[in-house]
């Protein structure tokens, strides 16, 4: 499977990763190489095989509904890039 420039731009956008024009050719080539490696899977007939998401195939444990957390806002926000009045700041969100 080989990708072209538009594919790479689309994926980079989906993943929200800035990619400069001069990075695109090399990235395209490397991603295509990886996809070639991956595509070896396509030759295998897996009809009727159930997908495996977790190796141990156990089931979800449930937690009792209890409030166990207290307010640590100040601690948690010391490592935040930008806050004000307890809020995380981001460039204006347009709806």
């Amino acid at each position: 499977m080989s990708l072209d420039r538009t594919d790479v731009e689309k994926i980079a956008h989906l993943a929200r990763i800035a990619i400069s024009d001069d990075e695109i050719p090399a990235t395209t080539a490397k991603l295509s190489g990886i996809l070639d490696l991956i595509d070896k899977m396509q030759a295998v007939d897996t009809d009727g095989v159930a997908p495996l998401a977790h190796p141990l195939e156990t089931t979800q444990r449930l937690r009792p509904d209890a409030v166990t957390e207290s307010n640590h806002r100040d601690d948690y926000q010391t490592i935040a890039p930008a806050t004000e009045s307890g809020l995380y700041l981001v460039p204006k969100v347009i709806e």
Binding site: A15, I17, I19, K30
Partner: peptide, 13 residues
Amino acid sequence: VKRRIMVGAYALS
């Protein structure tokens, strides 16, 4: 890291 993120995003798209 960027390559793997992009491969992953592609594989799930």
